[in-house]
Computed example of a mutant assay.
Amino acid sequence: MRIHISNVAKLPTKFGEFKIQSFQEGIKEHLVIFKEPIGDIPLIRIHSECLTGDSLGSLKCDCGEQLEYALVNIADSGGMVIYLRQEGRNIGLFNKVNAYALQDKGLDTIEANHQLGFQEDERNYEIVNYILDYFDIKKIHLLTNNPKKIESLSGIEIVKRWPIIMASNKFNEDYLKTKKELMGHMI
């Protein structure tokens, strides 16, 4: 895996002052948003891109709320968000919109992905291990509900898993139920 690493830049946000760095993996350009001091056992959020939730405030998922929760907590205590460019569980924005259309017709998120010819989750977390190694991080507090993120970390001690539970709404109740009951998310 050939990775190109950008310089570090300041990133002032409504949540606090962070630093940002990009890790380019082929055509994917992932981000690390971090608050110093990172610490010996930093708070880490591995977050996959969700344009509709992160930027547009979609109520169909809990992604944007989870990202904001992570940034608020990291701004307070230090740590990092590893922002992976894996839109729609790595099926891309075009296919995600098509999956949304199928969900509008009654399919759940997994059925919609299958209908489009994808697995329930196409994401890959290999770059996360590279990034944590680059920052010389061996132990973490992990903000996640997703068991696949936990399983993907090799050589990293998860000292504590912090659940990241957001309130449901009428637009995402079924989505959250599917994540819990069929995908094993700890919510």
Rank of each mutant, 00 (worst) to 15 (best):
I110A: 03
L116A: 10
S58R: 03
G88T: 06
L153C: 11
I137L: 01
L132Q: 09
R89C: 11
G155V: 11
E49G: 02
G106M: 12
V72H: 09
N90V: 07
C63V: 09
G78D: 12
G53I: 10
N73E: 13
P147D: 01
V72E: 14
N146C: 12
V159A: 09
N95Y: 13
T52N: 02
G64Q: 09
N90A: 15
L143G: 00
N129Y: 06
I137P: 06
D121C: 13
D62E: 14
C63P: 05
Q115H: 14
Q86W: 11
D76K: 15
E151Y: 07
E126I: 04
I46Q: 07
Q103W: 05
E68S: 14
N73V: 01
Y83L: 11
V72D: 04
E122M: 14
N95K: 13
P147Q: 06
G106Y: 10
V97H: 03
L142I: 13
Q86R: 03
K148V: 07
D133N: 15
S77F: 07
H47F: 05
A99H: 08
C50K: 02
G78M: 05
S77E: 09
I74S: 03
D104W: 02
Q86E: 13
L67M: 07
V97E: 10
F94W: 02
I46M: 04
Q66G: 10
I110S: 05
K105V: 00
D104N: 12
K105G: 01
E111A: 14
L67F: 09
K60D: 09
I150S: 05
V97L: 15
V97A: 12
N124L: 02
N90H: 10
A75T: 02
S48M: 10
L93H: 03
H141E: 15
N90L: 04
E68C: 04
V81T: 09
Y83H: 12
Q66K: 13
L51F: 15
F94H: 08
N124T: 04
Y134Q: 07
K96R: 10
Q86V: 08
E120D: 15
T109V: 06
E111C: 05
E126R: 13
I150G: 00
Q119V: 01
K139H: 04
G79V: 08
L102Q: 11
L93C: 02
L51K: 09
C63W: 04
D136V: 03
H114P: 00
C50S: 01
I110H: 03
V72M: 06
F135G: 06
A99T: 10
H141N: 15
Y125L: 05
C61G: 00
F118L: 06
L143C: 11
D76G: 01
G79A: 10
A75N: 14
I91Y: 03
Y83F: 12
D54K: 04
I74N: 04
V81Q: 07
I46Y: 03
N124V: 02
Q66W: 01
S55T: 08
Y134T: 04
H114T: 11
G57I: 11
V128D: 03
E122H: 02
L51W: 08
D133W: 01
K96Q: 06
G106W: 10
D62S: 03
E68R: 12
L51C: 00
L116V: 13
I158K: 08
E111H: 04
E65F: 10
L56T: 05
Q119K: 14
K60H: 12
A112E: 12
Q115Y: 13
K105E: 14
P147V: 11
I150N: 01
